[in-house]
Simulated assay, not measured.
Amino acid sequence: MNRLFYIVAIVTILLSACQSDSKKYTTVDSSIMSNQQAPYKSPDECFIYTKNRDTATLLMYGSADKILGELRYNFYEKDKNSGVIYGVLKGDTITVDYKFQSEGVYSHREIVWVRKGDTLLEGSGDVYEENGNVKFKNKRKLTFGKGIVFTKTKCK
C-alpha cells in the first residue's frame, strides 16, 4: 500500500470518529488519486503563508496532473480550520476541493491557485453553494494575488 492510501484512510477514520448527528460530514473521495503508481514518502511540495499573526500551511503530494494534500489556516482571532485537499493541475492552475473541520463543523469548498514561480496565488471571487459544497460561480473571473499568497518552503 502506498502512503497516500494511509493518509486518506487515517483522515477519513478520524473525521468519522469525531462526527455527531448534529454535524454535517462529507467523506473524502480518494478516487481521483486511484490511478497513482508511485508510493508517497513525504510531501512533494510545501508552502507557507504568513502575514502579521495569520498563518497557513499547505503540504502537497502529487504525480503528473493529480494533487492530494493537507491544508491548514490559522488566522488570528478567527476560527482555525484544517483538512485535506484533492484536485487537478492544468498548466499553471491548481483546482482542489478542500474538506475541512472548523469549530467542530465539517465543510467543503473549492480552492483555485495559480502558480507563479515558487508562489501559489489563491483565487477569490463570487461563490455559490450546491448540496453543502461552496464553489466558484465563474473560475474565469477569479482575482489572484490580492489575498493569500503561499510561498514554497522546505518540507519538514
Rank of each mutant, 00 (worst) to 15 (best):
S82C: 13
P43I: 05
G83K: 02
I48V: 11
I111Q: 02
S107A: 12
K135D: 15
Y128A: 15
D126A: 15
E110Y: 00
Y128P: 08
G69N: 10
E110I: 01
S42F: 06
M60L: 08
N52W: 07
R72V: 00
E77Q: 06
N81T: 04
L120T: 08
N74K: 12
N35A: 03
D79A: 09
V112G: 03
V105P: 13
E70T: 10
K78E: 11
S102H: 08
W113M: 04
L59R: 04
G83E: 02
R72T: 05
S30V: 11
T93E: 04
D79E: 08
G91D: 05
D126E: 13
K66C: 05
Y98P: 05
S124R: 09
D118V: 03
R109V: 04
F47C: 04
K78F: 09
T57E: 11
S124P: 06
D65A: 14
I85S: 04
G83W: 01
S30T: 13
H108C: 12
T57Y: 08
N52R: 06
K139M: 02
K99M: 02
L120F: 07
S124V: 12
D65N: 14
V96A: 03
S63K: 15
T93L: 03
V112D: 04
L89K: 11
F47H: 00
K137Q: 13
S82A: 15
K135T: 15
I32C: 12
K137R: 12
A56T: 05
F47Q: 04
L121Y: 12
S31D: 14
A56P: 00
N81Y: 00
T119W: 09
L89F: 06
T50N: 01
Y61S: 03
S30W: 07
A38M: 01
S82Q: 12
P43C: 03
